[in-house]
Design a protein around this nucleic acid. Structure first.
Lengths: 212, 212
DNA sequence: GCACAGTGGAGGTCAAGATCGGCGTGCAGT
DNA sequence: ACTGCACGCCGATCTTGACCTCCACTGTGC
């Protein structure tokens, strides 16, 4: 049962890989398993088997299961935050910014590896290290949008943060819903729809104060 | 160390409670522990100790840890879906509907027990039974809003679902952000802000088709 | 005074993360 | 080219920890 023949391996026989290549391959295998099963249900045996190696090899590259998970998590956390930041910096047109942000979320979610589940559906939020990273992602995205809202509308920071969190939530949830529903709407159309919803929501904020 | 003296108990000494009262107390203790630690980190010993009883008693009331968790989950899943449904049925004014929905999420999140974490931050989404329930919540909320959107704007169902998911995500994320940030904004003000964002976003949809 | 019911602490089982003695392969030196 | 070596890999194992049950005690009603 340590039999090879899984898709992630280059050859069908146990090959001796250079250190870095083996590491990358192990990360890829771990990601597939974590995404498919979640952290707790994923066994180190599963990951090793998926990679076509034995457990000791895994432990020769990573000290433990958590380190493996955190390595993957860090990669993708950085990715989504960077995408949102780029969306803010890429233009000065706020409507464009909203569109680009929404696209960022859809792209992130639409990536074939489904790695977004590591961030959005982690079953380890109770672990401090993971919690910190996941919260940092949301805080980071919200902060980027918050700054733009403040400088362009003049509402208070706490209000702007709340608005930003709403926009982030809309994009995030809609993107995940779109994917889970089987892409019933073409991607560009879905993005445009959510962008329109968000833009119409936020656009008129500078003009009139929010009354109770 | 099995000493009593925890807040959840009526008396400080081992008391003989009627069946249903004991069950309710066990559920309350379990909820506190699950909310604070998550499913995996919560031990049955912790729950029993929290309730001031011994483990056998716990197992006389619930067959296993999962059953206990599902019982709690079901309660709160029903609660939030019902709240959103009520928000839709309570009025015919769509602006009011949006406001009531947002309030529903804020109320749900603001409940002192923090039970919303069982639904929104469950570390058991990978378990089929739990996944089904959590997805059913989101689907249920989205469906209720979707129906209203369809009947009042005439957009296609798939588009309406996408819009509804965006609104749900905005309310959900904003409510959680508001709470996590320490209620920096008064509740009514936060609700009004998010409601305004959502209403401005959705209100103009019947008038003009969403162009690309 | 006595039977009884229900509690409390100690233990079994099992799964999963983390590790040790063989093995086969490629290489260097002569 | 042949032999000894060193290194990376694998099968089998250990241990921990958490869910789930068994022996002694206590308080009560007759």
């Amino acid at each position: 049962m340590t039999a090879v023949g899984n898709g992630a391996q280059t050859t069908g026989r146990p090959t001796r890989l250079p250190r870095s290549a083996r590491r990358k391959q192990l990360l890829a295998a771990a990601q597939e398993v974590f995404v498919a099963q979640g952290y707790h249900a994923a066994a180190m045996d599963d990951i090793a088997e998926r990679a076509g190696v034995s457990k000791p090899v895994l432990y020769q590259h990573f000290p433990g299961k958590m380190d493996l998970y955190l390595a993957l998590l860090d990669t993708h956390c950085d990715a989504i935050v960077a995408k949102v930041h780029d969306a803010m910096r890429g233009t000065n047109d706020n409507k464009e910014r909203v569109g680009a942000s929404v696209r960022a979320y859809f792209d992130f979610v639409d990536h074939e590896s489904e790695a977004f589940r590591l961030v959005f559906e982690s079953d380890l939020r109770n672990d401090p290290a993971v919690r910190q990273r996941v919260e940092r992602v949301e805080q980071g995205c919200i902060a980027a949008i918050t700054d733009t809202i403040i400088s362009d509308t003049g509402v208070s920071r706490s209000h702007a943060e709340l608005l930003a969190s709403g926009l982030v939530g809309a994009a995030e949830t809609a993107a995940q819903f779109w994917l889970a529903g089987g892409r019933q709407v073409p991607k560009a159309e879905a993005e445009a729809l959510v962008a329109a919803l968000s833009w119409r929501g936020i656009a008129s904020f500078p003009l009139q104060g929010e009354s109770a």
